[in-house]
Computed example of a mutant assay.
Amino acid sequence: MNPLLAAEQAVLGSVLLDPDQLSHLDWLAPDHFYRPVHRALFAALRKLRNDGHPALAEKSVPLSWVTDAVDEAGLHVRGLTTTYTHTLTSACPRPAHAPVYGRMVLEGAIHRSITEHAIRLHQAARADALRGEVEGALHYADVLTGVLNDLAQRWGTEPRPVAPAAPPATAPVSPPPVRTERVAEDEQFLLAVLTEQPKAMHEVVGWLRPRDFADPTHGQLYRCLGALHHRGEPIDRITLLWEAQRRGLLADGTLSGEQLTAICDGVGPGSADWLGQLVLRSSVTRTAATSARAIRALAENEALAPGRLINHALHALGPLDEVRTRWQSANGRPTPPPTGSVPSPNGPPSAQVRAALARSTPRPISPPAARPSSAPSPAAVPPPSRSHG
């Protein structure tokens, strides 16, 4: 039997056998159940409890507790019968283990929820890349961050970015085919403008980085331009070619003189700021897609514990937070406040404590003063560096 299905049945069976177990499952929500019939039945049982069902005051559980729950759940889902409740009660080895069964259900929900939101972020990033926008990807990134913080509170852990021991195996992310050629043209045009108009480097050097270029060769050329600009040396196609040679780009075959000539020839007037924003906008959607794929790969690893999954997912969103900050700087927009929850100086909220105790052996809670200081919010990003190294 599927372990998740067994856990869902065991939770419901324990509550049907012992209504008092609901008091130990306040951190578990109906949406955490995978099967719709289980979701509806758990919601019905909680509603009966909140409405003060007579079964809560009796020593032995009356049949009405089961029949009323089935009737209430039947208003929202089809196919639930009283006969199925016998299957649920038979699937529960010990009603007192309800919090442990609930932990298993929550663990499955965490993996499932993060997977679903990662897919939505990836779809939004691809759609934005096609439309030449970034708003959809950034919105779903905020949604995913909020989901991760909520799940961390329910699981009883402090949300903080933690790098995985080994990066998840994901296929390389390529931009949509209809935009690949256009992105390459924008990058070449920007490099040509910066080569022919060296003063234009001041317009982009504060927020554009070599890694923002989709073509690695273009990124290396921009790095060379940045190095010349940083040293205050003249910039033209000859000095750029010389800098590329000094960095070994000609020797290792990354670049040829003919390629550089092709990039610089035929340039007309252009705005470096506008072209730089096109390149950075493409970088935002590519980074969002990469982060989404990494998070999905993490979530699909069933052996990864929920706390580690949440913190690894927050770490995977770090590059997107960094490029978003530079995008906002390029557009003259103030950086918004962190979207993540701010850790309390007095320790985690009571909901986290209850969730943690529900999935482990209760231990004495140390005084607030004895707790270690919390890590900074995952959404906090250092100001962009002007280095091109």
Rank of each mutant, 00 (worst) to 15 (best):
N2H: 12
N2S: 15
L5H: 12
A10W: 01
V11H: 00
Q21N: 04
Q21A: 13
H24T: 12
H24D: 14
L41D: 07
A43F: 05
L45C: 08
R49P: 00
D51N: 14
P54Y: 13
A55T: 00
V61L: 05
S64K: 05
V70I: 14
E72I: 04
G74K: 05
G74A: 15
T81A: 06
T87V: 11
G102L: 01
V105I: 09
E107W: 01
E107V: 09
G108W: 06
I114Q: 01
E116W: 07
E116I: 06
A125I: 06
A127E: 02
A127H: 04
D128G: 02
D128H: 02
D128S: 03
A129K: 01
L130N: 11
V134N: 02
G136Q: 13
A137K: 01
L144K: 04
L144R: 07
D150I: 04
A152R: 04
Q153H: 06
R154I: 13
W155F: 08
P159W: 05
R160N: 08
P164T: 12
P167M: 15
A169V: 04
A169C: 04
P172V: 09
V183D: 00
V183Q: 01
D186E: 14
E187V: 11
L190C: 06
L190H: 06
L190M: 09
V193M: 04
V193D: 02
Q197V: 04
P198Y: 08
K199M: 15
K199L: 14
H202D: 12
E203M: 07
L208V: 14
L208R: 02
R211M: 10
R211I: 15
F213P: 00
D215M: 05
G219S: 08
Y222Q: 08
G226V: 14
G226I: 13
L228P: 04
H229E: 11
E233N: 11
A244Y: 11
A244P: 03
L250K: 03
A251C: 02
G253N: 13
T254K: 10
L255A: 07
C264Q: 08
S271K: 14
V279K: 01
R281S: 13
S283Q: 00
S283I: 01
T285S: 09
A288H: 14
T290M: 08
A294K: 08
E300D: 13
P306H: 10
N311P: 03
H315M: 12
D321G: 09
Q328G: 10
A330P: 00
G332K: 00
P337I: 09
P337M: 10
P345K: 12
P345R: 14
P348M: 13
A351S: 10
Q352D: 08
V353R: 15
R354W: 07
S360A: 15
P372T: 07
P376A: 14
P378C: 12
V381F: 12
P382N: 12
P382C: 12
